[in-house]
Design a protein around this nucleic acid. Structure first.
Lengths: 343, 343
DNA sequence: CTGTTAGCGCATTCAG
DNA sequence: CTGAATGCGCTAACAG
């Protein structure tokens, strides 16, 4: 059953030549609508689908888009992938998934991809510990690459990322509009570019509001929960006038920790202190108080990245300007922020 | 740079013929070790990798293994994929990922895969709402398929799954050994095969211990949290002698809900009531009391499934007996279970 | 507009 | 053991 038909069979069945069939397949306008319809009909009836391998070989393009991900455990990977898949599935391309299971960087993957012509383009979800150079090298060799840049790393590669600066600014504007003037930041690892961007956004807004930066309120908290707890306690051991009335945490789990520690200190959220997170993870809306936070557009990022590779593949000549798309983030106001308490 | 070399170039550079190079590539023993080494050396030096498309066309095998997943949001998908990737990366195959983004079933994917010869084999992570027939059909047409059967669905397809029966039995044995005789089950959706299997395992153990089944302790709780809370309360409105001393929840989040509701009812875990979950999600070890639960071997499931397709691809003739591999689960004893309280 | 003729890069006979 | 000849299924000029 379902014996595989070749283009030749279709040609015979339709009473035309192979190339006519090929032209129909490639939607060439150079074929008579009637013949075209007829050929399509034959194809459908016999359930013909062109051979993937043959098409790839002949065209010099495999119709495969590689996607390198650092792993699937990261909670937003699902969204990114969804965005990518949504775009790709409407094309003739398929996604080849490469998961970094080994520590040794991208290993032989990249080399293999390039020289074997495995994929027509590459989507790379930036990982903390992977250097970008090999990718840039690949790109120079003609492989369209788009970086899904969740880390805000600067590079000459085309990339899509979230507008972390705007995120920080939005938080600042929201808090300032509520009357807050002493805003602390639990920054996580401050050497990460995205953290710096957010802080810059926040500072700029504060500056514009006439609020001078206070280093004692900008905390490099790293990734360790205990550090955060200690820092939060430290904040409220400051002289009363120097204590913050709002805390901006670099991601939602950190915000939860902050809130929990505030509660332990006998402070109420948002009555005594307002708290803002980042990322809008599922739990943010379920927790109490529901968390005010910034939503990153991961689905859109995936989709946009896919569109970018696709277009780079379609027009390889056009020396694509390295586009660094920054997608807008969204402030989600919930219950963890409120007006500044009366002094 | 890195102009793509063909087998012909390598032949020329090595001073042999194309077919010799080909034989070397395919590790044929019919080539002189010296020439072989020489050719390999040339390939390495010039960074030659055979063209993916050409190899695929010529061999009639794309070297691609498709993986259909219902989505990446499901938390265990990462583990399954990791297991698959671990196995696949040591072979010449790559993974093509298909995500069901549309509701309409597998859509055209399956048809396309078969007739275009896109993939050499298929790994399908079972989804709740997808029928298996199309897959069986594909398999009949010669496409090796392995079902990663997280739902315990019966089918003639080769599949790997977790031993849910053993899981239920292990829970039973653990609780019985602690002296419990009145064990309630918060079953989730009882029409799901895996739920039934677990219940069967539990019942069999209870039966062997001389404990008669009690329908009032077997609760079809569906997926809704409120239902579970109500049922838990109901359990402790039973006459004192008929109340359970232990509760088996069909998954960890449900167990958390159960524990929370017990606390609200003024009952302590495990002093008054023991609670067991299923799946061993990350939170299970972080929560208090740390949850006793059953770990499912998702990584191993992925790996095993990958091995199965690979072998089916390698030996297509051998009318593979439809293997239904059931991988062992593991009881993780933590703090939520304890000796039955003294009457 | 349609049919003819060459390859694409490799695997696989088949002689030598 | 090695080299020359075919073909995989399709696309892409090129004639007709």
């Amino acid at each position: 059953m379902a014996e595989k038909l070749t283009i030749r069979d279709v040609a015979r069945l339709a009473g035309v030549s192979k190339s006519t069939v090929s032209l129909v397949l490639n939607e060439s306008p150079k074929v008579d609508p009637a013949t075209r319809r007829h050929v399509l009909e034959v194809m459908r009836r016999h359930n013909y689908v062109p051979s993937f391998a043959a098409t790839a070989l002949s065209r010099g393009n495999t119709g495969l888009i590689g996607m390198i991900v650092p792993g699937l455990t990261w909670r937003f990977m699902a969204d990114i992938n969804y965005g990518v898949a949504k775009v790709i599935e409407d094309t003739k391309y398929e996604i080849v998934l490469f998961t970094n299971t080994k520590d040794g960087g991208y290993g032989g993957i990249l080399e293999r991809i390039l020289t074997s012509g495995l994929t027509a383009g590459l989507l790379v979800v930036a990982a903390y510990d992977q250097p970008l150079e090999p990718l840039i090298e690949l790109q120079r060799n003609g492989l369209p690459i788009v970086l899904i840049n969740t880390l805000g790393r600067a590079s000459e590669l085309p990339s899509v990322g979230a507008d972390n600066y705007a995120g920080g600014a939005a938080v600042g504007e929201h808090l300032v509009s509520l009357g807050h003037r002493r805003i602390a930041s639990v920054l996580g690892p401050t050497d990460h570019p995205y953290v710096q961007e957010r802080l810059r956004g926040l500072r700029d807004v504060l500056h514009a509001a006439g609020i001078a930066p206070d280093p004692s309120l900008e905390l490099d908290s790293g990734f360790v929960e205990e550090t955060i707890r200690g820092q939060v306690r430290g904040l409220f051991e400051l002289p009363p006038g120097r204590r913050p009335t709002a805390i901006f945490a670099y991601h939602d789990p950190a915000a939860f920790t902050v809130i929990d520690e505030l509660h332990r200190c006998g402070l109420k959220v948002p009555e005594d202190v307002s708290v803002v997170g980042f990322n809008d993870i599922d739990a943010a809306s379920h927790v109490r108080p529901a968390l005010t936070t910034i939503r990153q557009p991961f689905v859109e990022m995936g989709g946009r990245a896919a569109e970018l590779v696709l277009s780079a593949i379609a027009e390889p000549d056009e020396e694509q300007p390295a586009r660094q798309a920054l997608l807008p983030v969204e402030l989600i106001v919930r219950d963890s922020t409120g007006a500044v308490p009366a002094a």
